[in-house]
Amino acid sequence: MSSSSATYPMEGRSIPERREPLIPNGVLGMLIFIFTEVMFFSGLISAHAIVKSQAAGQMWPPYGQPRLPVEETALNSLALLVSGVVLVLAWFAFKREKPAARIPLFMAMLLGIAFVGLQGVEWAALLADGLTIQSSTYGAFFYLMVGAHGVHAIGALGGLAWAFHKLDREELTSAQLATVSAFWYFVVLVWPVLYWTVYL
């Protein structure tokens, strides 16, 4: 603008009737929120890395603390990843024919609920084994990071349930589905990183 406007700034400017946003408002807002969330989890991951690197005697987990159930959680993670894939299918079904999205959307929710529920069972077992949030920084970071992810998963499931409800009443728009799906994809995709950081 600044260079050309010294002469005739209006030259060649065509004014559209109204502007069509490139990305719908809800999706854009959610993407910005997801950027913040990425930074939040980056903060947790780097804090974890710093504390882990300074652990006494490089013992991680520290002496006397139970080992995390790596294999069970790997299976559990699979449920979450599949749920993300099913949600992609739901999106394409929705694009084709709206009611066809019902079953894949429901399946994605079910798999997500299975993941959160199984994580809860795992927590109960670990608490019984003596790994608590006060017992060590190891336990503290485990519960903090996995718990933060769990809270996000529950929130995102709430979003999916809301979308399902709207779909049932035939009110769901594709922008709304894209908004709640974007958050669920974030929850799905951040999990492998957390799994790798906390469990392995």
Partner: peptide, 23 residues
């Protein structure tokens, strides 16, 4: 972009204050 890590840190500090963690 900058507030995420502080919120993470603030949650840790809050836990240190209230439920006696050792972050």
């Amino acid at each position: 972009l900058s507030v995420g890590p502080l919120i993470a840190g603030a949650v840790m500090l809050f836990f240190d204050q209230t439920i006696n963690t050792g972050f």
